[in-house]
Amino acid sequence: MTAPTNPYNRIALLASDTERAQEAYKALSPQQDWAPLEEADVVVVLGGDGFMLQTLHAMLDSGRIIPAYGMNLGTVGFLMNRYDKRANIAKRLAKAHRKSIAPLRMEATTQTGETQSLCAINEVSLLRETRQTAWIEVTVGDRVRIRKLICDGVLVSTPAGSTAYNLSANGPILPLDSEVLALTPISPFRPRRWRGAILPDRMHIKLRVLDPDKRPVAAVADQKELRDIAEVSLEIARDTELELLFDPGQSLEERIVSEQFVVD
Rank of each mutant, 00 (worst) to 15 (best):
233 S>E: 13
234 L>Y: 02
244 L>V: 03
236 I>A: 07
248 P>S: 11
216 P>G: 10
246 F>P: 04
246 F>G: 01
217 V>P: 00
232 V>T: 07
243 E>I: 11
243 E>D: 15
213 D>Q: 13
228 D>M: 13
250 Q>C: 14
251 S>K: 15
245 L>K: 05
240 T>W: 03
210 L>M: 08
224 K>P: 00
243 E>W: 05
243 E>G: 13
229 I>V: 09
221 A>G: 03
225 E>L: 08
253 E>P: 07
240 T>P: 02
250 Q>T: 09
241 E>Q: 05
207 L>T: 07
254 E>Q: 14
225 E>Y: 05
251 S>L: 10
206 K>Q: 14
206 K>S: 09
214 K>V: 12
220 V>R: 04
235 E>W: 01
240 T>R: 05
214 K>R: 15
214 K>D: 12
216 P>K: 09
231 E>D: 04
246 F>A: 06
215 R>T: 05
218 A>Y: 05
249 G>D: 15
217 V>R: 02
211 D>G: 15
219 A>S: 07
240 T>E: 02
255 R>N: 08
233 S>M: 14
255 R>K: 10
238 R>A: 03
220 V>P: 00
246 F>W: 04
247 D>C: 13
242 L>N: 04
229 I>S: 03
210 L>F: 15
210 L>G: 07
253 E>K: 14
236 I>F: 08
234 L>F: 01
251 S>G: 15
235 E>M: 00
250 Q>K: 12
241 E>C: 13
246 F>Y: 11
233 S>H: 12
208 R>V: 08
251 S>I: 12
228 D>R: 10
230 A>M: 09
224 K>A: 01
233 S>Q: 11
222 D>K: 06
235 E>L: 01
254 E>P: 04
241 E>S: 09
242 L>G: 00
216 P>F: 13
220 V>G: 00
232 V>P: 07
245 L>Q: 02
235 E>C: 00
245 L>E: 06
236 I>T: 04
214 K>T: 14
210 L>Q: 10
231 E>V: 02
223 Q>R: 08
229 I>D: 00
212 P>E: 06
210 L>H: 15
233 S>A: 12
241 E>G: 03
240 T>H: 10
223 Q>E: 14
226 L>A: 02
207 L>P: 02
219 A>I: 11
227 R>N: 13
253 E>R: 15
254 E>W: 08
235 E>N: 01
241 E>T: 10
208 R>Y: 10
252 L>D: 07
211 D>V: 15
244 L>R: 09
255 R>Q: 06
245 L>A: 09
209 V>G: 01
226 L>E: 06
213 D>T: 15
224 K>N: 05
238 R>W: 02
240 T>C: 05
217 V>C: 04
244 L>W: 03
222 D>N: 11
209 V>K: 01
253 E>H: 12
240 T>V: 06
241 E>M: 11
232 V>A: 12
212 P>T: 13
224 K>W: 12
230 A>R: 12
220 V>D: 00
207 L>G: 04
217 V>H: 02
217 V>M: 05
237 A>T: 00
209 V>D: 02
241 E>Y: 14
211 D>F: 14
